[in-house]
């Protein structure tokens, strides 16, 4: 069975364009460590166009954590910024890229739709 991280990147890889990242360009390397090895994921964004890869790419910023920690982040169960403050995830390099990377992380499963009235966009 695929891990939450694999599911997350799998799903992300099927999205070719992310409007919320329309003016962002850069590459984030995600290094995930468990007892046996380190796995690398690459998340490259070019003016909103997205590439998810496991091939070695030159990165502008690096996210490091234990594999099980990132699984929680990828499932929306753990807030990445709080995890960074706790010292469970480290971030290096270009920080704007990372705050934008946060935009594609799913929302917490428990957060419902209370209070939401309509979802008609002002979308571009």
């Amino acid at each position: 069975m695929a891990s939450p991280t694999e599911e997350f990147f799998g799903e992300l890889g099927r999205r070719e364009y992310i409007p919320q990242l329309g003016k962002t360009t850069g590459t984030v390397r995600i290094e995930l460590v468990d007892d046996e090895c380190t796995r690398h994921w690459y998340f490259r964004i070019n003016q909103g166009k997205l590439l998810v890869s496991r091939e070695n790419l030159e990165a502008d910023s690096v996210v490091r954590s234990r594999q099980d920690v990132f699984d929680h982040v990828a499932a929306g169960e753990m807030n990445m910024m709080a995890a960074v403050l706790r010292g469970e995830v480290s971030v290096e390099g270009q920080l704007p890229l990372l705050t934008l990377f946060e935009r594609v992380i799913p929302e917490p499963p428990s957060s419902g739709c209370r209070g939401r009235v309509s979802d008609q966009g002002v979308g571009s």
């Binding site: 919320q20 929306g76 935009r103 992380i105 929302e107 917490p108 957060s111 419902g112 739709c113």
Partner: peptide, 12 residues
């Protein structure tokens, strides 16, 4: 803008 909300999170 770079920290604008992107999801529903009741705690926050």
């Amino acid at each position: 803008a770079s920290r604008q909300g992107s999801r529903r999170d009741d705690f926050r």
